[in-house]
Design a protein around this nucleic acid. Structure first.
Lengths: 102, 102
DNA sequence: GTCGTTTACGGGGATCGTAATAATA
DNA sequence: TATTATTACGATCCCCGTAAACGAC
């Protein structure tokens, strides 16, 4: 299980469709996305989405998984940003004044 | 940035050495691990560890990164376990009934 | 008949392991 | 001198994109 799987799953859950998630959000192909989701389900050992002719639908397990998945990605991004912030020695918390960075 | 990078970084931080982390914890080779850590630092844009002749030492940014990284991995594992638990309909805390739905 | 997912296949990129090199106590 | 990290190189594995097939409404 890699962060890529989580990103892909979130995109699918958010779009409600493998096709639109692949082309519109992930800029990849449907077959690749389908395989990644299938691999993810295989590793977790649980069916996360229900395939239908008009898109996909999250299973109860998929909904729970999605919630934790979002937090995991947020933490990963937070780690990156926190490290970047910690690498700026002369940047205290009060004077955020006039520079471009927030 | 993938979960593999985070797992590798945690192992290095925990072992204090690329060599011991590679062979003793990750069961891989030092060169692979060295490259992965370097790639991770390149993506974050911050030096996370300080290389020495007798091991590695976390930079302040590395320590902050490590903290968030652990939480990210915990969340990812929690997602997996929560999904597996949610897929067991007849295994609630005590008596949520016997139907498949929540 | 149309939409959507899945499977098959070939190409490309990334990772890995071994071996050799450089630097430091 | 001994230990550790880095670089070079060849092989292997995984992911991706295109094309064809299956199923549902």
């Amino acid at each position: 299980m890699e962060l890529r799987h989580l990103r892909y799953f979130i995109a699918v859950a958010d779009a409600g469709s493998l096709t639109v998630a692949a082309e519109q959000k992930l800029h990849t192909s449907q077959p690749s996305l389908s395989r990644q989701i299938r691999d993810l389900e295989a590793e977790v050992g649980v069916q996360l989405i229900h395939r239908s002719a008009h898109g996909v639908e999250l299973t109860p397990a998929g909904k729970v998984f999605l919630d934790h998945t979002r937090m995991a990605l947020v933490q990963a991004e937070a780690a990156k940003e926190a490290a970047q912030r910690a690498a700026q020695p002369a940047r205290p918390s009060f004077a955020l004044g006039f520079m471009s960075g927030a």
